[in-house]
């Protein structure tokens, strides 16, 4: 007996309310953008400079004690968060301190870190500093710039590639889906105030890659079916194509999610934010290849004169044999 997540032959109508779906997506994007503009992202030190110190001690973390020890140093804005994780041992109490970039300093000076460490040692004798990271404001500004450029470049490169391999309508649809995924991910990060650092940019780009992967598979089938069913309306061709690839879409999303969820639960707190972004991205990316990319394709319409024989244009790789 086979495990089947999707029945053999499906004929869901994905586009009966495609305008509604597009509307919902647009609304969600507006919501995400609003959250981003209203409360902004919780940038990590990679993007705004400053110092983070990760401490470990056998004693239970008392944020008040930590704060009391650091207050006399007058270091400005300090956030102290206790971190819980199923992978920690019983007497492993971890806290994360974030100290803002000090004025007039390029990188947090060693002397500041030494003072902080001494003050905390005074309050909690067995405290250990398992990691100390500081980034100067000069670098952090550049990191933001590089990150934005990377995301834009990735989307641009993809636009060009799909344009070359398909038609411009496909490229627009795919890119709209990507932008949708990126904006929604940023929105979730600003709404939940999860720390947004360099690794999250990597996650964003992976989401771009994954969402695209999904979209391209659907589009590939659409292209094939457009040749096969020359007289069928575009809406029906899209429906057929999505139903035909539905089983694969679900399978791949499930295997990827299985892997990511195990990483989320067991991979430790250091990369949890990163993995969360990817899980969210896989879900949103799967949704968007149907309800954004294909819906946009439907909206834009496609030139239907696929009169060329099928083994020249689309299947140019097909004659490779192993």
């Amino acid at each position: 007996m086979r495990l089947k997540l999707v029945p053999q032959n499906t004929s869901f109508d994905f586009f009966s309310r495609w305008k509604l779906w597009l509307g919902i997506s647009a609304f969600m994007m507006a919501l995400a953008a609003g959250s981003f503009l209203y409360q902004g992202l919780n940038y990590g030190i990679d993007f705004r400079g400053g110092t983070t110190i990760r401490t470990e001690s056998a004693q239970v973390v008392d944020v008040g004690v930590y704060r009391g020890a650091l207050d006399p140093l007058e270091l400005g804005d300090i956030t102290i968060t206790e971190i819980f994780d199923p992978t920690f041992g019983p007497d492993q109490n971890v806290a994360m301190l974030r100290i803002q970039a000090q004025e007039g300093e390029e990188a947090a000076t060693a002397s500041m870190v030494v003072e902080v460490e001494a003050a905390l040692k005074g309050a909690v004798p067995d405290i250990q500093f398992v990691s100390v990271e500081s980034v100067g404001p000069k670098v952090s500004g550049e990191l933001i710039q590089t990150a934005v450029i990377a995301v834009v470049l990735a989307i641009g490169a993809v636009l060009v590639y799909i344009w070359l391999r398909f038609e411009w309508q496909f490229a627009l649809g795919a890119v709209a889906a990507l932008v949708h995924d990126v904006i929604l991910t940023i929105g979730v990060f600003s709404e939940l105030q999860i720390r947004f650092d360099l690794a999250i940019i990597a996650a964003l780009l992976t989401i771009v890659g994954y969402s695209l992967n999904d979209t391209v598979v659907v589009f590939d089938r659409v292209r094939e079916n457009l040749r096969k069913y020359k007289k069928t309306p575009l809406k029906d061709v899209l429906n057929i194509s999505i139903n035909e690839t539905l089983s694969r879409t679900v399978m791949t999303s499930v295997t990827t999610l299985l892997a990511l969820i195990s990483l989320y639960v067991l991979g430790g707190d250091v990369i949890r934010g990163f993995v969360f972004a990817m899980i969210w991205g896989v879900i949103v990316g799967t949704y968007s290849s149907v309800f954004v990319a294909s819906a946009i394709l439907l909206y834009l319409g496609v030139k239907r004169d696929w009169t060329k024989p099928s083994n020249t244009a689309g299947n140019q790789y097909a004659n490779i044999d192993a």
């Binding site: 993809v158 890659g209 391209v216 299947n315 790789y317 097909a318």
Partner: peptide, 18 residues
């Protein structure tokens, strides 16, 4: 094959940019 190649080439592009 064409779906596999297109899908992986696009992901590869983002990996290269990254």
């Amino acid at each position: 094959l064409s779906a596999i190649l297109d899908a992986n080439i696009t992901t590869f592009i983002t990996a290269v940019i990254l």
